[in-house]
């Protein structure tokens, strides 16, 4: 019989991880708000001396925002998956299945399915969900900032790898 404490796991699934997801949603919203206000500060018009740092900043900000928002969805999905596992363990227990185990494959497919739900906003939380990372955009006006910097850095890294 595997050593599993369903009550302990259930508290991770229904308390710790949703709270962690809420933390991440909160941080994503805060970072996102800070970034939205930053565009006009960092990217003013009519400037004579380059803006490579702020353009890099905008790309970095978009990445961090997407990561935080995705962490929230992921931890929330993980919590749901753990609760499903707990249900399975208890059902097996009730049926006196001595050697019941959840497989890694089952875990993965449960998580994948739950992540689709949380990514689509299908969950309960008191917090307002942040904008999805893929849809978040702080570009100022019509101009897209930072692509050239990202391209440059990728080329540098490629050269280092080849060198």
């Amino acid at each position: 019989m595997p050593e599993i404490d369903v009550n302990e796991l259930r508290s991770v699934g229904d308390t710790v991880l949703p709270a962690m997801a809420d933390d991440y949603d909160g941080f994503a919203t805060e970072i996102g708000d800070a970034g939205s206000g930053a565009a006009s500060i960092l990217l003013p018009d009519n400037q004579s001396s380059g803006n490579a740092l702020s353009e890099a900043w905008v790309e970095a900000h978009k990445f961090l925002y997407a990561v935080l928002e995705e962490n929230a969805d992921s931890h929330r999905a993980a919590g749901m998956t753990i609760l499903e596992c707990c249900d399975d363990y208890e059902a097996a227990d009730a049926a006196s299945a001595q050697d019941f185990e959840v497989s890694a494959e089952d875990l993965e497919s449960s998580y994948t399915s739950n992540f689709e739900k949380t990514d689509a906003g299908e969950y309960e939380s008191e917090l307002a969900p942040p904008v999805d990372g893929q849809d978040y955009d702080i570009t100022a006006g019509q101009q897209s900032y930072g692509d050239e910097m990202t391209e440059w850095a990728e080329q540098q890294q490629q050269q280092q790898a080849n060198g």
Binding site: L53, A56, W57, E59, M149
Partner: peptide, 11 residues
């Protein structure tokens, strides 16, 4: 300076 700072941040 902005280029070096920017490239460093991007890296």
């Amino acid at each position: 300076d902005r280029e070096v700072f920017g490239q460093s941040l991007t890296t």
